[in-house]
């Protein structure tokens, strides 16, 4: 006797062979077809920068490594639900990775690097989402006024902006991480956005 399966058998077109020159979307299609070598290519392509960026969120390299492991396992298990957007999967993978790190940090002993040290990194993207001319504003090196506006925010406001806007966490996740009630996260987020709009107006 076999256990009942609620999944219907899936017939998928056989994905093309993958190579280091395949783009992320082709690799994801191959991962959805349970091709381990495609996952490895994705891992080798994205793990180094993910690690660098996650290490700026959490000083414990073991927790970062665990988060990266969880991320690619989640990619493997969820590849069928992936829908290609944009040029590559980097933003999608980052969202998964930072969520994984956030949930690891929720466990005892986890250490989210305080906003004071890192909130500044949030500024560029925060501004990017608030502004309409996203791409030009993103390059904060050339557009210092946004950076300045964000830098003038209080550390508490920047922490909220960092967790929600830059790292893409939900209000609930941010509230757990920062140890403040969800309502406070929401009000701080609104205040931060309003202040940025004023400064950039």
């Amino acid at each position: 006797m076999r256990p009942l399966s609620l999944r219907f058998p899936r017939k998928r077109p056989h994905p093309p062979p993958v190579s280091p020159s395949s783009d992320d979307h082709d690799l994801m299609a191959a991962v959805a077809a349970e091709r381990v070598e495609a996952l490895r290519l994705l891992h080798d392509r994205h793990a180094p920068w993910l690690r660098a960026r996650l290490l700026r969120r959490c000083a414990d390299p073991d927790l970062v490594d665990d988060a990266i492991q969880d991320t690619f396992v989640a990619i493997w298990r969820g590849a069928r639900r992936y829908s290609p957007q944009g040029d590559d999967a980097a933003a999608w993978i980052w969202t998964i990775a930072v969520r994984r790190l956030a949930s690891a940090l929720r466990r005892p002993g986890g250490r989210w690097i305080a906003a004071a040290a890192l909130a500044d990194t949030a500024l560029a993207e925060t501004g990017a989402r608030l502004a309409s001319a996203e791409d030009s504003v993103l390059l904060g090196v050339e557009h210092g006024d946004l950076g300045g506006a964000l830098a003038r925010l209080s550390p508490e406001l920047r922490a909220v902006i960092q967790a929600t806007v830059l790292d893409g966490l939900t209000v609930r996740e941010a509230s757990r991480l920062l140890g403040i009630p969800e309502g406070t996260v929401k009000t701080r987020l609104m205040r931060a956005k309003a202040r940025l709009r004023e400064e950039l107006a």
Binding site: T121, E125, L138, L139, G140, V141, G144, G147
Partner: peptide
């Protein structure tokens, strides 16, 4: 801080610069 935010904002959108992060 301003440099950091620029780098991170750029990284997620630029495959070429992501490759430049040493492995």
């Amino acid at each position: 801080p301003v440099g950091v935010m620029s780098v991170e904002a750029h990284l997620v959108r630029c495959a070429r610069c992501r490759t430049a992060v040493p492995a």
